[in-house]
């Protein structure tokens, strides 16, 4: 099957530091790829290069075979690349419902409509309520996003991406910092997404048991380089992974 998302020699330098170093990799629909590696390996930066928050120093990004290296983040979002951020990135003073409704509105392509009150777009509100149900945030819909607990903010972060209904889902440590009982909501959601074989899912995750149970494939980044790529069992057995995850316990949060 042709890749939905692909990078070729993708590189970014910050001054003298090469954060992502000539990474070539292809991702396919129906496949959940876990991206692992120690803190500072370049996972988040690699995501930012693919979803357009950062511009590559060299190399290319392809979406369904088309070169999108020059496209901005909004262009890529509208082309079907969805992103949930590692550092929660919400509209803090707007309500939980409004946060999601804005994503639904973006998905519906309603960008410049100004002659009707937003309340008359019942369809957008209903869809947003549906997404909130999926992440178990419906009871908190009228609260300001900033007033949510950390775990609920993480769920809302994921909800914004779900509401966009992208073809490519990029989860960056979606469960980091969540309490044990909150984690299953997010994992179930990812598992349900996996059932849809038209979706490409990329997941940065530190918890090895989660990776093992969800991933079809694991790639390993180390110092910005792609050092391993393959089946979960095989990759987890590699010395470099053992060293990163079992030798030294991973820190809970990364930059």
């Amino acid at each position: 099957m042709t890749p939905s998302l692909e990078t070729k020699d993708l590189t970014i330098r910050f001054g003298g530091h090469v954060a992502v170093d000539a990474v070539s990799c292809a991702f396919r629909p129906g496949e959940l790829t876990a991206i692992v590696g120690p803190n500072g390996a370049g996972k988040t930066t690699y995501f930012n290069l693919m979803s357009g928050q950062l511009r590559a120093t060299s190399g290319n990004v392809f979406l369904n075979g088309a070169d999108i290296t020059g496209q901005s983040a909004p262009q890529r979002a509208r082309a079907g690349i969805g992103r949930a951020f590692q550092l929660t990135n919400l509209f803090p003073n707007l309500s939980v419902l409004e946060n999601v409704r804005l994503a639904v509105q973006a998905r519906a392509g309603v960008h410049y409509e100004m002659t009707r009150p937003w309340m008359l777009r019942r369809d957008l509100i209903e869809r947003a309520n549906g997404v909130l149900d999926e992440v178990a945030l419906a009871p908190k819909r009228d609260q300001a996003a900033a007033s949510l607990s950390h775990g609920d903010q993480r769920k809302l972060e994921v909800a914004l991406m779900m509401a966009l209904e992208p073809d490519i889902f990029m989860f960056d440590e979606p469960t980091a910092g969540m309490s044990v009982d909150e984690v299953p909501v997010v994992l179930d959601l990812i598992a349900r997404l996996k059932a849809d074989t038209t979706k490409t899912i990329l997941l940065v995750e530190h918890k090895m048991d989660v990776v093992r149970s969800l991933a079809d494939r694991i790639i390993v980044l180390h110092n910005g380089q792609l050092v391993a790529d393959g089946e979960p069992g095989a990759v987890i057995a590699l010395p470099i992974v053992q060293e990163a995850y079992l030798g030294a316990a991973p820190r809970a949060r990364t930059s």
């Binding site: 928050q53 909004p74 979002a77 509209f91 973006a106 960008h111 410049y112 409509e113 937003w118």
Partner: peptide
Amino acid sequence: NSPFGRVLQAIRENPFRAEALGY
């Protein structure tokens, strides 16, 4: 109070995220 006005508020709150949603 239109959908457009709501996007303005989103941009005020977090322009970075508004872009990531496609605005």
